[in-house]
Amino acid sequence: MNISGIEFIKGCSAIGAGLAVIAGIGPGVGQGIAAGHAASAVGRNPGAKSDITSTMLLGQAVAETTGLYGLLVAMILIFVQPLAK
């Protein structure tokens, strides 16, 4: 089986894209911790529920950014293929 150079690069780009979305682990853990602490905070002080929810959403959105960077790298590797040009 003959694999040309460009096909090899495309295959490696696909593997790299798969590796890039491993970045999603970190935000997942971080968002889970934030949600857990928010839940316990609501349990302790149910009156402040709306404030806690908005703070939690803000923090989770900021924590999500790094995972999204991994996703963007994966998308660029698959759909734009800058290395195979």
């Binding site: 999500e64 950014t65 999204l68 960077y69 996703l71 998308m75």
Partner: peptide
Amino acid sequence: ISLSLRLFANILSGTV
């Protein structure tokens, strides 16, 4: 950059 990339990547991931 982070403000715009966050919005862009979230909506793009949904679209994709």
